[in-house]
Design a binder for these strands. Structure first.
Lengths: 154, 154
DNA sequence: TCAGTTTACATGCTTTTGCATCTACCAGGG
DNA sequence: CCCTGGTAGATGCAAAAGCATGTAAACTGA
């Protein structure tokens, strides 16, 4: 038996996106009010978090910028501030003298871990009651597929 | 036969949320660069959009604020600007003299529709290739359930 | 009824963001 | 080799954001 896979119409995609977006807002709104984000904003934490996810520990600034919603100048200045706080290091890329590479300092890594632990714990308390383990698995699979399947054209 | 519904562990919830969040960032990053948001930022558009969704057309400012990620003072000033542009109206609430109610002007409604049409069209082009109609339906159902099932405690 | 508390929004002030632009560097022909 | 075009970040400046606080109205409980 052949499974028919319907192409989504414009209503379907719009409604799914709206629902996903509202869920994200609802969760994020509660998260960012939590005490772990008093010293470092969610955006700043997200930079540190992204830095933990790159092999070798160094990432290009432009590459980092692709995973964030802030503009290139804003990231440049946010890195200034994180550097001033002793949380990240800057160096010029070896192969491309225009480029800048960033990595966490030990203090930065430590702070990320500390905030991350609290964050994950609070996140769990907040969202765990909403879905079963199986449903969270489906949600993860669908959102991963969504992200990786975005139209390259636009 | 009884279906066993497992409770999610902390890894499962954290990974699902991270995936959802990254998908949202990836989509939003592309959306906000589109031409329809040159005149009005995504945040401002979202306010107009929320105003189309309230019965009677008038919404309390604090109620509106719950659906947005910006702070109360920021919303207050954003409404100032939208009012100055002739897109929304302000009035004091009847039952509660402290409260402010907002509604769209005709120009505001018109602008929302115009941006909204472009927005939905571009959104569709962007995300439609990623999932089937059935999968978008599942995604919508899961994210709605997530949003409505958040722990009231935190 | 009236002082004390809470809620809703506005406002002063500082920080952060974004747009436009600048500089430095790379890459690809002539 | 130099010139042209393009890319990676930095920076000047104006707009927007958040924090702390102010004001005024509503609730609360003697």
């Amino acid at each position: 038996m052949i499974e028919q896979e319907r192409l989504p119409d414009i209503r379907t995609t719009a409604q799914a996106w709206e629902s996903l977006f509202r869920a994200q807002v609802a969760v994020m709104r509660r998260l960012q009010a939590l005490p772990e984000f008093r010293k470092l904003s969610v955006r700043e934490y997200d930079v540190l978090f992204n830095l933990t996810r790159c092999p070798g520990g160094w990432t290009r600034l432009n590459e980092l910028n692709e995973n964030l919603l802030i503009s290139q100048p804003s990231l440049s200045r946010m890195v200034d501030r994180l550097e001033a706080k002793g949380l990240v290091l800057r160096r010029t890329a070896e192969q491309d003298q225009r480029g800048i590479e960033i990595s966490l300092t030990e203090a930065g890594r430590e702070l990320q871990r500390r905030i991350g632990r609290e964050h994950v714990r609070h996140l769990h308390e907040l969202i765990a009651p909403a879905l079963s383990a199986e449903e969270f698995g489906q949600l993860q699979a669908l959102t991963e597929k969504l992200r990786s399947g975005l139209s390259p054209g636009c």
